[in-house]
Computed example of a mutant assay.
Amino acid sequence: MTDHPHPRAPRPQDDLAPLQRLGRGARLAGGLAFAAALSLGGAGMAAADPGDDLGTTTFSQSDQEGATEYWTAERMESAIPADTLIEGEQAPDGQVESSETVQVPRVDPLAATQTQSGEADWSFEADPSAAASGTDHIGKVFFTVGGNDYVCSGNAVASQNGSTVSTAGHCTSESGQWASNWVFAPAYDQGETPYGLWSATELYAPEQWVGQEDMNYDIAFAVVAPESGSTSLTDAVGGSGIEFNTERGALYTSFGYPAAAPFDGETLEQCQDYGSDDTLGGTDDQAIDCDMTGGSSGGPWFVGDGADGMQISVNSFGYTAQPNVMYGPYLGDVAQDVYAEAAAA
């Protein structure tokens, strides 16, 4: 294992501090039940070859069509921030393998022309008016697990296939089982989905998450397809640049759709702070001051002020003993490998 270039503070000698759900004054960024055995319809057991860093699952065309049909406005509105199901879990200490910094540059959206019928013709031309600092690439993630409907957040990232979404690992799989009805709603606002719903064709997460639920690896990527047409996600909304093995302790801006009180999940919210190490539980995650609640899980962290910097993490968890503090996983070599598989799918 390569030593991390920035040492962490010593881990306290007492027991690991328990994670907690995101709530006013005590927050966890949405999660899945860690205990129950699940039956997930079209989604199967997490699959990974021995020694591989990742687990992955594929959804059939009928699964994808069923997912977009499933998420009516009423179901989206009533989806539960899944944070309550992780309450009391513990975050294992650990150091993420890290080597050289790798950056994937952002991509800007393209402009669709309008047909006589009023439908979008996804034959794109470069749109110089596309705002590089816009947030249309950030959206809500909806999924079903254990017979319940849940909500997280996600972000479109630059990729070879043009249709890759980042989110938290716990927004994709639980106890070796994958979620079903997984869709991404970019630019969600007040119940409106201006770019429609994008259903997952594949889900990817580190085997350290899928097999062990290690909070150091609470990151996942989805490859998605539009509910109609053949455009790519980043052509429609753009895609953030993403960075692995990044310098620690910079100024970060975090985005998400917190749905637990005092928020309602209907609008995009943000936090900003300088990253600091986990001195409570000993994970390799970074922490920022942030009051976002359940539903914000999987929302992106960007370097700098705003949404146009490199993405370097996602909203993941918090500790009961640290109110209003959000942790995000350090994206090291394993996360880079998982991203590379998803981006090329």
Rank of each mutant, 00 (worst) to 15 (best):
P7A: 04
A130V: 03
H170M: 02
T115N: 01
A250P: 11
V107Q: 02
S98F: 09
R75C: 00
N324C: 04
V96D: 12
N245A: 04
A261K: 09
E69Q: 05
E243N: 00
A35E: 11
Y252H: 13
E269S: 04
G147K: 14
V104S: 03
D136Q: 10
D305H: 11
D136T: 07
G249A: 02
E243T: 13
A82E: 04
A47N: 00
V314R: 07
A321W: 08
Y339D: 11
D49Y: 12
C152M: 07
M292Q: 15
D278F: 11
A342L: 02
S240P: 14
G42L: 08
S228I: 01
G162T: 01
A185Q: 00
Q322H: 03
Q270F: 07
G118F: 11
D305G: 08
T279N: 13
G211I: 03
Q95P: 07
S117V: 04
T253Y: 10
F302P: 14
T253I: 14
R24K: 12
T2M: 13
E213V: 02
V237N: 07
M310C: 10
G298N: 09
S180A: 08
E202N: 13
Q270Y: 09
E192V: 10
M310W: 01
T72H: 00
G169Y: 01
S228H: 07
P7Q: 03
P10G: 02
T56H: 10
F59A: 02
G196A: 02
R11L: 15
T58N: 05
A29D: 07
V141E: 08
E269M: 03
A26Q: 07
A132I: 15
N245I: 12
N161A: 13
G265V: 10
A321H: 12
S228A: 06
I288C: 08
A156I: 08
S297N: 09
F263S: 00
G275L: 06
D63L: 00
E213R: 06
G281E: 00
T84Q: 09
Q311T: 15
G41T: 09
T144G: 00
A260N: 10
L19Y: 06
W71Q: 05
G241F: 01
T2N: 13
D52K: 04
L22S: 12
A156Q: 00
A126G: 02
E266C: 14
D289H: 03
D289T: 08
